[in-house]
Design a protein around this nucleic acid. Structure first.
Lengths: 256, 256
DNA sequence: TGTCATTGATTGATATCCAATCCTGTGGTT
DNA sequence: AACCACAGGATTGGATATCAATCAATGACA
């Protein structure tokens, strides 16, 4: 087993990408130490890990907060993500075997079924995972870790935005990228990856203030101790425009 | 001022990329705590930072060591570096203005002068820095940090290899990349970047055992306290085949 | 009302202590 | 002599208590 501080850093990371801890939320050492029943020192080590990962910012003598990236930084993160995925696409278009293409198609198919059956939460997770699977096929652990970090940061960014996304359209993008790559149309695939991310970023409005709806203790309670309690559940956010079952899929990439 | 653990992590990083702390070297908490005159906890926090950066590995209940990447990992690091720089090249070929091209050329020119005047150490540093300047021109801090981390890891790798490199040839590569990019021959430039890194990696022989010639105390002494002592000096390694003034430039990329 | 000082809270860091684990060296056994 | 088991030392991971420095908020006072 790894160190305790790593375990706690993992839980905090999870809570952040689940949007249970929102940007700006104070991560007090004493409070976290009580919640996890460890000493402040272990908590501090966890926070250092989170800060190195870009998910938290530590201000001297003020404490740690969930990172609140600027719009500029958001653009840079998506730029970097695009760059990485385009590069991986170029590698895969050369080197990926039939089994790899099959895995990608299978993943898209699973997401398509999730969408069809109305399981939006699962579809969302699978949509995220697609990019991870994509990079994993490059068989480069270093690249995987870099990419995973960028993905975590984009997930964090989603706490700051208000737009709904069109999962169907993003899903189609995934399928089309696979098609283009397998046919060797690398340039078009890379263009599509760029568009894919741009369509996401274009929906961003980041001036919004985010109010923590949950105290850290409430936010972290589901992750504690494993055995007891319910399994960790995804985000409990209320989005603007949400109206229960019939959700309007805003096509954020619409206008040229 | 940032935290003490960050400062110590920076010094350790410096010592590692200067090849004063070599892969496998034990980084004992008690020893470092004495050297830096801080508590063990601060040292531990520094080591966590180093481990997150890929420069150290922490083995539970065994302690921290300067990372000793496998050949596989070395290849992955150079692959990732290639991918990143190719991506940046693609961006720059579109977006870079005249001032940017001038800065790149000027940098190459400075390195050329260093080579001409026989200042191999400076030439080496400038050669490294070229890649950093290159990425900085992308104006993407996130990408810069990722790249900088990869560069640090490649520098660490150089502690593990025996080959001498042909700085002249690598220098020519830099100049040619600039030329190709400015003329819009992106594909050729990317090919050259790939070759550039492959030519480095091809000289790798990593089975070699590295014996720490310096104890951590000796290795870190130049960095302590700033005011006193000589300025931090580069690597004191003895390379195989070294024979004083007349050094043979082995063209490691020779055979196709 | 506006400014300044005090107070409280939190972080950064230290020292000391303890448990768990790993390494090693010793001793017994075959 | 070779090999295995075990005990002791050393080191790490972590807890607790404590102290100084700094920030924020409050309240006193002009």
């Amino acid at each position: 087993m790894s160190s305790r501080s790593q375990a706690i850093a993992d839980i905090l990371t999870r809570a952040i990408i689940d949007h249970r801890l929102v940007p700006g939320c104070k991560l007090g050492e004493r409070e976290l130490a009580e919640i996890f029943d460890v000493s402040r020192i272990v908590v501090r080590q966890s926070l250092i890990r989170l800060a190195d990962d870009g998910l938290a910012q530590i201000e001297r003598n003020r404490g740690a907060f969930v990172a609140r990236p600027s719009m500029q930084e958001a653009l840079e993160i998506y730029d970097a993500l695009t760059l990485v995925e385009q590069g991986v696409a170029a590698q895969l278009s050369d080197r990926l075997g039939p089994a790899g293409w099959a895995e990608l198609r299978q993943h898209v198919e699973r997401q398509r079924q999730a969408v069809a059956s109305g399981n939006d939460a699962l579809a969302d997770v699978l949509g995220q995972e697609f990019h991870t699977v994509f990079v994993r096929l490059s068989r480069n652990k270093v690249m995987q870790e870099i990419h995973a970090q960028l993905v975590r940061r984009t997930t964090l960014l989603r706490s700051l935005i208000t737009a709904d996304f069109d999962y169907c359209n993003l899903l189609d993008d995934h399928a089309r990228v696979i098609d283009l790559l397998e046919k060797g149309r690398l340039k078009q695939a890379m263009e599509l990856i760029d568009m894919h991310h741009r369509s996401v970023v274009r929906g961003y409005i980041m001036d919004r203030q985010v109010f923590p709806e949950l105290t850290p203790r409430e936010a972290l309670e589901p992750y504690l101790d494993g055995k007891s309690g319910e399994p960790p559940k995804p985000a409990p956010r209320k989005k603007a425009g949400e109206n229960g079952a019939a959700r309007a899929h805003a096509h954020v990439h619409a206008s040229k």
